[in-house]
Amino acid sequence: MATTAGTPVAAPPAEAPPGGPRRRARISWAAYLALLPLLVVLALFQYYPALNGIVRSFWDWNPGQVSTFVGLDNYAKMMDDAIWWRSFRNLGYIFVFGVVSWVIPLVAAELLITLRSQRAQFVYRTLLIVPMAFPGVVTALVWSFMYHPNNGVINRALTAIGLESWTQNWVGDPSYALWSLLFIGFPFIAGLPFLIFYSTLQNIPREIFEAAALDGVGRIRRFWTIDLPLMARQVRLLFFLAVIGTLQYGFMAYIVTSGGPDNSTMVPVLRMINVAFQGQDWGYAATLSTTLFVFTLVLSAVVVFVRRSDPASTNVRGLR
């Protein structure tokens, strides 16, 4: 504020900088318009099919023909579907086995991070993740050939070392089919868990490891007291992603076993496909699809809730 002859005079208002509120408003509207085509495509190819499936679950749906409204009859039928509920039991085995198998990529990441040579880390890391580039269908077909009861590599190897009594019809026997399916991809290093574990360990400051070594902290103790606590959020994220991914599991089972033998490898996605394309019961298939969608949606909401209630993420948001 300036003064003239002892009388205060207000300073002239500062000019608004270029790119003020009006310009920002124009940019915001432009962004909304740019997003509009994407929202239209999502509504047409994602939201509409999902909502249509929910509506069709209350009908005896016959595409191209007359459909009859049946209310909750399809859902009552689902409650008595033994194969459908057995498929969820199989999913439980798949989920537990998948979580336990994280031990191998975790050990690999721990061993890799101990290498002092950055070049050696790069070479080994590349060799470990190259299998991720292989198409899933190729992996499924290769393992199918390995499991072949007569000419498969596994049975031939067992016979060659004198363990012929151990040979099995690995994917043709209900007692072994599910376990054989679970072991596809062994040793499970080339995947998302390894990348997350390794990147987390790589971002831990070296000074922490050096200080722990100076304090006489051994390798195993360092894992339990330093490495694992720092990976807690990543492990929790992997856990929930595994839950959601397991609910959508079906590709490998479809290629290798088609849900057999005797439904021993049946999973919800395969049951839904079989009801739709083999049984031609489209309304009931929509019911199964809707139920699976609700399960996935609820678990996704749990993921969001847990991440928002995470104290660490709350502190980060408070610093912004």
Rank of each mutant, 00 (worst) to 15 (best):
E207F: 05
R221L: 08
L270N: 05
P49N: 07
S57R: 02
P311A: 04
N155C: 00
Q278Y: 07
V130H: 05
W224T: 12
P12Q: 02
I129Q: 01
D81F: 03
R26G: 13
L112I: 12
A120R: 11
Q202W: 12
A133R: 00
S289Q: 07
A76T: 13
R23L: 13
Y47A: 15
F223G: 03
F223Y: 12
T296R: 02
P187C: 06
T225N: 11
V40P: 02
R307K: 09
L299D: 10
S101C: 03
A25R: 13
I196W: 00
F240Y: 08
A190H: 03
T265G: 01
E207H: 09
V96N: 00
R24G: 05
W84G: 02
F293H: 04
G283A: 08
L297Y: 09
A211N: 03
G53T: 12
D227W: 03
D281H: 06
A30H: 11
F145T: 11
G19D: 06
F240G: 10
P311M: 08
A76P: 00
A157N: 00
A109L: 08
V243C: 14
L35F: 13
P193M: 07
R222V: 08
R24K: 12
D73Q: 11
D227L: 03
R26S: 13
F293N: 08
M252N: 12
S117Q: 05
F188H: 12
Q248E: 11
R307S: 14
F293R: 03
V138K: 02
W143K: 01
M272Y: 09
A212Q: 03
A312Q: 14
V256W: 11
G136V: 05
A31C: 14
P37R: 07
L39D: 05
M1W: 10
L158I: 06
L44P: 04
A14Q: 13
P8T: 10
A211W: 04
P13F: 06
G279S: 06
P187D: 09
A14G: 01
T257A: 04
L237N: 08
L106F: 14
V40S: 05
Y47H: 07
Y32T: 15
Q168G: 01
N90D: 08
F122T: 14
F277Q: 13
A14V: 14
L195M: 14
